[in-house]
Nucleic acid binder design. Structure first.
Lengths: 183, 183
DNA sequence: CAGTTTGTTCAAAAAATCTTGAACAAGCAT
DNA sequence: ATGCTTGTTCAAGATTTTTTGAACAAACTG
């Protein structure tokens, strides 16, 4: 299936199957991933797939981005978990192939589902823990102050919980004016 | 003004001026800071100030959290920059004292202003750069594909730009029903 | 079944990030 | 001015996170 030998010396300079604009897009996503708290390699992988029309195999991702097997494997898995890439098995080929999800709404809601929602849930637990600690030690003054803070945090939690669904709705809906989109 | 000597040996065990619930709240913010991509110490500092009614000096922050001068100084400066803490100079005292901003809307809008807005601006530059690169090298096919991707990215940028104002509005407004708030 | 191909895992190396503390600057008080 | 207090800076050290690649498992192939 592979038409050239794995040890072909002519291959050593075959790097850079990327157009300039593709490198720029990949770099853009690298930076974006960084500021979302995701590893740079995730951004690179997503960026590469975003640029391409056809699905790429893990090998191709490794070659084009010059990253290790481990990074490619872990990155693709995490991106699929986030809903940012999906994979297909073309029949008659054992390779799994990957494409980027390009609907912003899907990306955002996947990100929120995986990152924000868990934090909100842990928040509930934390608030209960603090509530418990309030009975314990400390002066009466401190306990009153603690109760106030607990209320504030509960309010924040409530507001954030209400915000997230709005975000999911607003993004991908082109404001609120109905407008053709191919979603 | 300071009633005890700086070298008072009785002070060496005076650590832990924190109630249990305060430690829990500080830990909560430590984790929150982490997931927002901010250093843990920023979270600790904010958490401590959040717990307290009176403004604290940098020294007090250092002592109570057991962090270094450098961390305290940088953390407080960054938090002020984010609008998460504000400082006052009480007359007759040379120390600067800090309090936490507890209005969620202020916190969110400060965060967005400092973190999201700059990225959107850099995004514009990046898009223009890609646009330029599209003229350059690559097959005609590639250039068409690149132009498509550029459109998609522009659309995303537009949507994110529209989203942020909504977030700033929704948070702190208790849904959209008018309701008394002391902002 | 032995040999391939494909993908995962994880411990160790590399890289990025955060923290520390000593040196420094600025301003007040004596 | 001299000494004290307060706060900043930044290079070096500590810590955390990410990447690598070799060993492994699974599934197909001939």
């Amino acid at each position: 299936m592979n038409t050239f030998s794995l040890t072909d010396p002519a291959l050593s300079e075959k790097v850079e199957g990327l157009d300039e604009w593709e490198s720029a897009v990949i770099d853009l996503f690298l930076n974006a991933a960084n500021s979302f708290g995701l590893p740079k390699s995730y951004g690179q992988i997503y960026g590469l797939l975003f640029c391409r029309d056809q699905a790429l195999s893990m090998d191709e991702v490794m070659d084009l981005l010059q990253i290790s097997k481990g990074s490619a494997s872990q990155g693709l898995r995490a991106l699929r978990q986030l809903g940012a890439v999906s994979s297909t098995f073309s029949p008659g080929d054992r390779k799994e192939r990957f494409v980027a999800e390009i609907r912003l709404r899907k990306l955002v809601s996947g990100f929120l589902r995986e990152q924000a929602d868990p934090h909100l849930e842990k928040g509930v637990a934390r608030l209960k823990q603090i509530e418990g600690l309030l009975e314990g030690s400390g002066s009466k003054d401190s306990r009153i102050r603690g109760a106030r803070r607990h209320e504030i945090l509960s309010g924040w939690h409530r507001q954030m919980s209400r915000l997230l669904p709005w975000v999911k709705m607003i993004v991908g809906k082109s404001d609120r004016l109905p407008q053709k989109n191919k979603d």
